[in-house]
Amino acid sequence: MLAGRSKLIEEQIPRLRRYARALTRDPVAADDLVQDALERAWSRLHLWRSGTNMRAWLFTILHNIHANQVRAASIRPQLTALADWETSGSQAPSQEDRIMVRSLAQSIDLLPEEQRVVLLLVGLEELTYEEASKVLDVPIGTVMSRLSRAREKLRRLMAGTEAPIGAKKT
């Protein structure tokens, strides 16, 4: 029984890592976050009901840990730490792609946290709106409005038609 569950948990590790990497933009901090989430999942495994959505459950745990950390630190990792790995992806994008993608990464950083999280859960992790609503513990309508604001703000930031208010040094 335990083996079955640990397999279900293990299967989610790559996606948890991807989400954590996008959230923290720091490989070490991201894996720390995933490790914390996995350890907490094990300590609460009795709360997980067999047959329900393991992925949403794990993302919920990870999200809550991260939200607490953000609240506690009320700081985000600095942009400067990113440059090293952000452009050194395995994709080896063309110069043009790289410029586009970099400005995407920087623009995401300027989104309010609650919008950023929805954008990553839906746009990157492709959770359904229902799953995202469960993970974040907010109504679906709230997910939709945050998603809408996130995408629109991001579009304007990238198009240069919106000044990044509260922008940090880059």
């Binding site: 590790i13 996606r15 395995s90 995401i108 990157l124």
Partner: peptide
């Protein structure tokens, strides 16, 4: 763009400490 930035993580080898944490 998001996938372009972060999908590389999926192909990375899972660190042993995370495997251990999963079981």
């Amino acid at each position: 763009g998001l996938h372009g930035l972060y999908d590389g993580v999926l192909a990375e080898e899972i660190p042993p400490r995370l495997r251990r944490a999963a079981r």
